[in-house]
């Protein structure tokens, strides 16, 4: 039986206006997030992953704008939601954690004050109840010594601890969707593992749907159920995680997977084939963004109606040579 998705993004297009013209940073992006599932986003730096995340919370920076497409959360139309409704939904329905947890905290407030105030904003409870709840959630997140933790200031915790506290706060509001944008990028491997464990537990125990953005293919490989690969604002490939890693079809996905380092010291030479120039994000409706850098490019690629096509069941690719 098909599960009803919690969040549905359909043909999303985001433009950014710069003094030098309009840049199309997100183009024709569609995906769904289901309860208890992890949808992974990987891709080129600057390919529009963070912009996509921000649009889901209606939090795009001033110069960016959704110009086409829709975002539906259950039956709510996020893009046409009142500011008040959106404020209510943020945190309690759709929550977000970011790369640098320090920026999410006010440095002069204790962890306890953050936690309790967040709870009280969203729930009709007393301060004492909020405190009890905070301790319970810190315990659930396996954080040591919760009572003491509440008294500490953000700077007194390591980046890893702070990120785990952030997730505990997020969990306490029981959101249906969690957007995690590079949640472990600033952390070492040990802390990373703890965060992933926590996220995995969150989706299992609370059925939270997670959008996981990471440039670390190991992170995506371990946690994501389905993966989208982004390049130049487009999703160029989308597939269940095993299919994507075992049979990558898009030329960009292939060279990206070839760049995985692992713990060998073998020099990776294939990457030299790909030129350094970045994709042209200005104009060029519907042509292939990878054209200038693609090994397989030829005249057939100058197709101005390139679409994400299903090559085999659930495996979508945006390349004229596939399907």
């Amino acid at each position: 039986m098909e599960q009803q998705p919690i969040l549905t993004v359909n043909k999303l297009n985001i433009d950014v206006s710069t003094p030098h013209g309009v840049t199309q940073v997100v183009r024709d992006v569609s995906f769904k997030i289901e309860a208890g599932k992890v949808f992974g986003f990987v891709g080129e730096s600057g390919s529009g992953k963070t912009m996509t995340c921000m649009s889901l919370l209606n939090l795009l920076p001033g110069e960016a704008k959704v110009v086409k497409g829709s975002i539906k959360f259950r039956n709510k139309d996020i893009l046409n939601c009142s500011a008040k409704d959106m404020r209510k939904a943020r945190g309690s329905e759709i929550a977000m954690i970011m790369q640098n947890p320090m920026t999410a905290f006010n440095p002069v407030r204790t962890i306890g004050r953050h936690f309790i105030e967040t709870l009280k904003t969203h729930l009709p409870i007393t301060k004492q109840q909020a405190r009890t709840m905070a301790i319970a959630y810190l315990e659930k997140a396996d954080l040591p010594n919760p009572e003491n933790l509440l008294k500490q200031y953000p700077f007194q915790l390591s980046g890893g601890m702070l990120q785990r506290v952030m997730i505990a706060i997020t969990m306490s509001l029981n959101p249906s969707i969690l957007i995690a944008d590079e949640p472990t990028t600033a952390l070492d491997a040990t802390n990373q593992l703890q965060i992933l464990q926590q996220l995995n537990w969150l989706r299992k125990e609370y059925d939270t749907g997670i959008l996981l953005v990471s440039h670390d293919l190991g992170v995506i490989a371990q946690l994501a159920d389905e993966v989208a690969v982004m390049y130049g604002g487009y999703i160029v490939e989308k597939a269940p995680v095993f299919k994507l890693f075992n049979r990558p079809m898009h030329p960009y996905t292939r060279v990206l997977l070839e760049s995985r380092l692992g713990l060998t010291r073998r020099k990776i030479k294939s990457v030299q084939r790909v030129s350094v120039s970045s994709p042209n994000l200005i104009n060029k409706e519907n042509t292939c963004p990878f054209f200038e850098r693609c090994e397989d490019a030829d005249h057939t690629c100058v197709n101005d109606n390139l679409e994400l096509k299903e090559c085999e069941k659930d495996h979508l690719v945006r390349c004229v040579k596939s399907g």
């Binding site: 990987v42 080129e44 990028t185 440039h215 293919l217 990206l256 380092l261 990776i268 990457v271 790909v274």
Partner: peptide, 9 residues
């Protein structure tokens, strides 16, 4: 903070 392809390059 970079994607793995650029990292290796």
């Amino acid at each position: 903070a970079l994607d793995v392809l650029v990292q290796v390059q």
